Amino acid sequence: MSAALVIGAFWIDYRDYLSSPLPLPDEAPLIFEIKAGSSLKRVVDDLAEQAVIEKPRYILLNARLTGKGTQIHTGEYRLEPGMQVRDFLDMLYQGKVIQYSLTLIEGWNFRQMMTTIHTTPHLEQTTLGFSDKEIMQAIGHSDEHPEGRFMPDTYRFTRGMSDIDILKRAYNAMTTHLAEQWPQRAVGLPYETSYEALIMASIVEKETGVPEERGTIAGVFINRLEKRMRLQTDPTVIYGMGEYYDGNIRRRDLRTDTPYNTYTRGGLPPTPIAMPGREAIHAALHPEQTEYLYFVSRGDGSHKFSRTLQEHNEAVIKFQLKGRKRSFSSYKNNEDDNQ
């Protein structure tokens, strides 16, 4: 057989192989990992030992012909039934690694966020047992309180990424968003810094059961701040109670002073109390212009808003006391109360 025929037969076989399906065991998806420092030859040899790659020399030849043999990416890859060899190569060259996701929810506090991060499969854990300060130090912000500093969102990651990677991305996302939104805030708001707006956004996030009410609730709190009224919002009290909160908030809790008790202290609490989402931040920076000073839960997630203490007391009797008059803080002592 002439050399030309031999070369021609080899080339046909090479092209046919690239179009052939991978012989996956049991016709099921196969997950394999390329670790840092692995060469294409090492990857191909490993898959050949698993009988997935039948002609490894053709894979290496393709890498040389295309010049992409040094472009493989570390991570996990999924081989699906019916996938052709050329699909495998494209996946390898383009770095189409398996991506996992982690969702941080609006309204979670820092502890809830870290519990979720630390129990997320496939994510390397490097901060287990760290204090809050040590975690912030690990991401380069040891002088900051962690609460509210991270953007709630869904974050995708690949095997080999760590909790620090997620924390940095969430921190940077919040920092960037707040920096973009702060200059666009409404005129005349009683905030000196964007951090104070973040604190307000966290309160709005925790008080809002109906998204459409965010702007109104923010407007109520702005009105109270401007009139030097205490915010008197239960979520701040609950946050200040910490591990002592058992699911119920009592009158004595409202009277027990902590840095976060907005019934006993004026102004904003010292830090955010949760992770506010983008909508809550927008509401804090663009509150509804309203005359409302009070609101009370209707029991269905929505609120009844009032302009005067008398209206508010009547709303408390209707929605909280089921129409029965009995003493409560604003009714008995003529004190403002928006719980």
Rank of each mutant, 00 (worst) to 15 (best):
R111A: 13
D337C: 03
T154H: 01
L22Q: 02
W182M: 02
K318Y: 15
R326Q: 15
R111P: 01
L189R: 04
L40H: 01
E33C: 10
D13R: 06
V220T: 09
P29I: 09
L89R: 00
R15Q: 08
I203D: 01
M241V: 02
T264Y: 04
R169T: 10
R252D: 14
L198V: 07
E213H: 06
G299Y: 08
K318E: 08
S306Y: 02
S329T: 15
R156V: 11
L225A: 12
P21G: 13
A186C: 10
E243P: 06
G219H: 05
H141K: 10
F305C: 05
L167M: 02
P211W: 06
G95V: 00
Q339D: 15
N338Y: 13
Q71R: 10
A36N: 12
T290A: 14
A28R: 04
N261K: 06
E49F: 07
G209E: 02
Q125R: 09
L30P: 12
V204C: 03
L60P: 05
T290H: 06
K318G: 09
F150V: 04
I98R: 08
R250C: 10
R265D: 08
T175N: 14
D16C: 15
N248W: 15
G148W: 01
H286D: 06
E207D: 07
W11N: 10
E212M: 13
T271Y: 02
I273L: 12
T175W: 15
H177P: 03
N313Y: 11
